[in-house]
């Protein structure tokens, strides 16, 4: 019962924070510096790990596909398999999970410590709502940065698959064949689908992490607990949302 109450409390505060932050969207031009800083932290510094991870995701997809498909001679479809799964699912998913682990945890830790050390209270005393100064620039930054990160993840993943397809002995698929199959079966619609998903995931991750950070109570030990809770909640939210979002997108734009 207490658990259920906590969940409802969490959902309610997240929604309240969302409404308040969106209400401050008009103040973005005044906070351009903070917005750029958040963009830098969320996008630019996350790029290397996104690139490395998606390269290997694409590679291992091609490897597994080649292993499973070599028995029935469908190896020339590796390109379409890697292309579609990276664009529609794995690209946005991996970027969001990385965002939750790398950026979300940092946001929660920062806001939780500000809350614990009563900096948030000080801001409120100065009539500066934390939703305006701390949450809104982060949400704006993640909206701008997520598509960029996702498209880079997709492209790097595709090239990783191509690299593996042409260099692993038992697959041995020409790069042109790989990209031919990829281009034939992957449409920009699929990529756009993935970008929409990444946008939603990134927004939800940042919103949840901000909310949990701001709701931290107690001493410094609570900071760690909040970070853990924020990351776990983000991951669960990503995977659950992924299913329903995919359903909705399939309804909106059937193949």
């Amino acid at each position: 019962m207490k658990q259920l109450r906590n969940i409802c409390d969490g959902v309610g505060s997240v929604l309240a924070l969302l409404v308040r932050s969106v209400g401050y969207a008009g103040t973005l031009p005044l906070q351009l510096g903070r917005f750029i800083e958040q963009c830098y932290l969320i996008g630019y510094t996350t790029l290397p790990i996104v690139a490395i991870l998606s390269f290997f995701i694409g590679s291992v997809l091609a490897l597994q596909a080649g292993y499973s498909m070599q028995d029935f001679g469908a190896k020339s479809f590796i390109g379409s398999l890697v292309g579609l799964s990276m664009a529609r699912e794995l690209g946005p998913m991996m970027v969001s999970i990385l965002l939750a682990g790398r950026v979300g945890s940092a946001i929660t830790a920062e806001l939780a410590s500000m809350k614990v050390y009563q900096e948030i209270d000080a801001l409120e005393t100065m009539n500066i709502p934390p939703a305006r100064m701390l949450v809104m620039p982060r949400l704006a930054a993640v909206i701008v940065m997520m598509p960029v990160l996702t498209i880079i993840a997709n492209l790097v993943g595709w090239f990783g698959g191509a690299f593996v397809s042409s260099h692993v002995k038992f697959i041995d698929i020409d790069s042109s064949t790989y990209f031919g199959a990829l281009r034939h079966y992957t449409k920009f619609k699929d990529v756009a689908n993935g970008l929409i998903k990444a946008e939603v995931f990134g927004f939800v991750v940042v919103l949840v992490c901000c909310s949990i950070g701001l709701r931290t109570r107690g001493g410094p030990r609570e900071i760690g607990a909040s970070v853990t809770r924020a990351v776990v909640t983000s991951l669960i939210m990503i995977l659950v949302l992924d299913y329903f979002l995919t359903q909705v997108l399939l309804l909106i734009s059937p193949s």
Partner: peptide, 8 residues
């Protein structure tokens, strides 16, 4: 950040 965004 600007470069990164334009690249994307």
């Amino acid at each position: 950040v600007g470069f990164f965004f334009l690249l994307g």
